[in-house]
């Protein structure tokens, strides 16, 4: 990688540096994805691999009116994600 490639001049450069790394993506509708970034474009359409999707739902108990937060997870081998649902993308997860 040359010096020019490694500097962040515009926001999308941060995502360019995350190519082939595991990233975190927050989406509309209380959805989150963790997966390896294989492709993206200027709309933030993406192809992710080894994806784990987390969907958070809040249910209100009929009697006590308590908010019950539930998270559902599922794994998908390869996923194309349409960019218009993306809220934020965060570079490599340290694990």
């Amino acid at each position: 990688m040359t010096e020019e490639d490694a500097t962040v001049k515009e926001p999308l450069d941060l995502i360019k540096l995350s190519l082939d790394e595991r990233i975190y993506v927050k989406l509309r509708g209380d959805r989150e994805l963790r997966g390896r970034l294989h492709a993206y474009d200027q709309h933030l359409n993406m192809i992710l691999g080894e994806v784990e999707e987390t969907i958070t739902t809040i249910e209100i108990d009929d009697e006590t009116y308590e908010e019950i937060i539930k998270t559902n997870k599922r794994a998908v081998p390869f996923l194309f994600v349409r960019g218009d649902g993306v809220i934020l993308v965060s570079p490599p997860l340290r694990q």
Partner: peptide
């Protein structure tokens, strides 16, 4: 469209990179 689940056999990651 929100997602498209892709068939694992037809994803060439090097080509995509």
């Amino acid at each position: 469209v929100r997602y498209v689940q892709l068939p694992p056999g037809s994803v060439d990651v090097e080509l995509l990179h």
